[in-house]
């Protein structure tokens, strides 16, 4: 694995009105778990485990918060790409915090 070690980093802004609350955090974590890479999320100097929903919710990342997503591992690039896309797509939530696609 070590020969495949990649590090990828990207800054994203939380755009959905309610911020990184329970369900967006859950979506983020579920997506993060699909990747082998270790995922770190950095917010104002706090770095937390991107695969921990408890850590993510206690970040209290509101709308407008800037987060740095960092992945280390064989699929780091893909992981950061996918996670950033999820954040920028406002976690596929409506402004009221409902799921745009309940059927999923």
């Amino acid at each position: 694995m070590s020969q495949d070690l990649q590090v990828a980093r990207r800054q994203v802004e939380i755009l959905n009105a309610l911020g990184l609350h329970l369900r967006p955090a859950d979506k983020f974590v579920r997506l993060a778990h699909r990747f082998q890479s270790e995922i770190r999320v950095n917010h104002e100097g706090h770095e937390i485990n991107g695969k921990s929903i408890l850590d993510l919710t206690t970040l209290a990342a509101e709308c407008g918060t800037m987060l740095v997503l960092e992945a280390r591992g064989p699929d780091a690039e893909a992981a950061v790409e996918a996670l950033a896309e999820l954040v920028l797509a406002r976690f596929h939530e409506t402004e009221e915090g409902h799921d745009k696609d309940p059927a999923r």
């Binding site: 329970l22 369900r23 859950d26 579920r30 485990n49 921990s52 408890l54 799921d99 999923r104």
Partner: peptide, 21 residues
């Protein structure tokens, strides 16, 4: 009951499985 409530319970499952915990 529907997806809203199920999503919360699903998030609970992830919290229980949380690596930080």
């Amino acid at each position: 009951i529907g997806p809203q409530y199920a999503d919360i319970l699903g998030a609970h499952a992830r919290m229980i499985d949380d690596p930080t915990l």
